[in-house]
Each structure stands twice: as structure tokens, then as C-alpha cells.
Amino acid sequence: MTDSTLIPTRVAHYYRVDNLSCTTTTLKILSEIYDVEISQQVFDAALGLHGAGKYGAQCGLVEGGLMFITIFGRELGLPDERSVLTCNQFAQDFEQQFKSLICRELRPQGFSPKLPPHLCEKLTCEAIEFTAKFVQELFEPADLTCK
């Protein structure tokens, strides 16, 4: 799929240099892995999800995965119903793997003004790798290859 340094390298850059959210980081990396163009408007919309994440609601790593699955599904010409069912399966699988879909439960040490902003860097790498594998296994026709 990708070389083993792509995800951690991109996560570190997007978090430490660009100060991007979990959702945007997830979308950018998955779009690179699968060579899918994502419009600026989608990234603009993802900005609001960061506010919900800071509230501690659904994790941006989940949201970014869900958004990418539907974008990629549309690009592959999948029926909407299949994309919806795929997102449902992704949420179930993510929760089984990481024990939650909720940011405040997944984020190490929760939220506090004294804590640095990107405590989830390791979790982000693991979640993006998980999502990339989920996408590959689910959508992998014989001719679909990752970059």
C-alpha cells in the first residue's frame, strides 16, 4: 500500500508544522495514498468538525475516515446505499479496534488547556493505517492499487 514512513511523516508534518486537525490530516493522507483529489470546500467543511472534536464528541479520525469512504465510493461509482452501509461497517470496525468512536475517550489524557494540542499523534498514525487497510480490503477490485 504505502511505504512504512509515509503516514507517520505526514502526520508529524500536518500536526506540528501545519497545525491541522485530525479530520483534515486523515483526509489529506488517505487522498494521497489513493490518489483521490479532494476539493478545498471539503477541507473547509472539515474545519467545523474540529470544533466538535474539541468538545470531545465523535473523533476526527472517524469523521475523516467516513468522509473519505464516501468520497472514494462516489469516485468508484458505488451506489449511495453501499457507501452508507460501508460507513456503518467502518464505524463498527473502528470501535471494535479502538474501543470507542468518541474523541474524549480516545484522546490520551483528555482535554485541558495545559496539554499540547496533538496528543493523538500515535493514535492518528494507527487510525489512518487502519482506515487505509479498511478501504483497500473493501474496495479492492483486481485493478485498484494504491500509490
Results as ranks from 00 to 15, higher is better:
21 S>F: 00
38 I>Q: 03
41 Q>L: 12
78 L>F: 06
76 L>H: 05
33 I>F: 05
51 G>F: 01
41 Q>M: 11
41 Q>I: 11
47 L>S: 05
81 E>W: 08
33 I>C: 03
83 S>E: 05
60 G>R: 02
61 L>H: 00
94 F>D: 06
59 C>E: 05
30 L>N: 10
74 R>L: 10
22 C>M: 09
71 I>C: 01
92 Q>I: 13
21 S>C: 14
29 I>A: 02
82 R>T: 15
85 L>A: 10
59 C>V: 11
47 L>Y: 09
23 T>P: 06
22 C>D: 09
52 A>G: 15
90 F>M: 04
43 F>C: 10
62 V>N: 08
56 G>I: 06
73 G>K: 03
80 D>M: 11
88 N>E: 07
44 D>R: 09
88 N>C: 04
34 Y>S: 09
71 I>H: 01
67 M>K: 05
49 L>Y: 04
70 T>Q: 13
74 R>V: 03
94 F>I: 10
71 I>S: 01
79 P>A: 11
70 T>C: 02
42 V>L: 01
62 V>P: 06
28 K>N: 04
25 T>S: 05
66 L>S: 13
46 A>K: 01
39 S>W: 00
38 I>V: 15
45 A>K: 11
81 E>M: 11
21 S>Y: 04
42 V>S: 07
69 I>L: 15
73 G>V: 01
48 G>P: 02
88 N>W: 04
67 M>E: 09
68 F>A: 04
48 G>W: 07
54 K>P: 01
21 S>L: 11
90 F>W: 06
78 L>S: 04
92 Q>R: 14
67 M>Q: 05
57 A>N: 07
68 F>D: 03
88 N>Q: 14
30 L>Y: 08
42 V>G: 08
28 K>Y: 06
37 E>K: 13
45 A>D: 08
29 I>K: 00
38 I>S: 04
55 Y>H: 12
64 G>A: 07
73 G>P: 08
32 E>P: 12
43 F>W: 08
90 F>S: 07
58 Q>D: 08
77 G>C: 10
36 V>R: 09
72 F>T: 09
54 K>A: 01
95 E>T: 14
77 G>L: 09
91 A>D: 10
27 L>V: 04
22 C>W: 00
56 G>H: 03
69 I>Y: 00
21 S>H: 13
22 C>L: 04
22 C>Y: 10
26 T>N: 02
32 E>V: 05
71 I>F: 08
70 T>V: 11
77 G>D: 00
85 L>S: 12
83 S>K: 13
53 G>W: 10
44 D>I: 12
55 Y>D: 13
83 S>W: 02
21 S>I: 07
70 T>F: 02
52 A>Y: 10
43 F>A: 07
78 L>E: 12
86 T>C: 09
74 R>E: 15
70 T>A: 14
46 A>S: 15
82 R>P: 04
94 F>C: 07
41 Q>Y: 12
29 I>E: 05
81 E>K: 14
76 L>S: 04
44 D>V: 13
20 L>Y: 13
26 T>S: 15
93 D>P: 00
46 A>Y: 00
43 F>I: 08
31 S>F: 05
95 E>P: 02
88 N>Y: 07
47 L>M: 08
89 Q>L: 14
21 S>T: 03
29 I>P: 03
51 G>T: 00
55 Y>T: 15
93 D>F: 02
67 M>C: 06
68 F>I: 01
75 E>K: 15
29 I>F: 03
90 F>R: 04
86 T>Y: 00
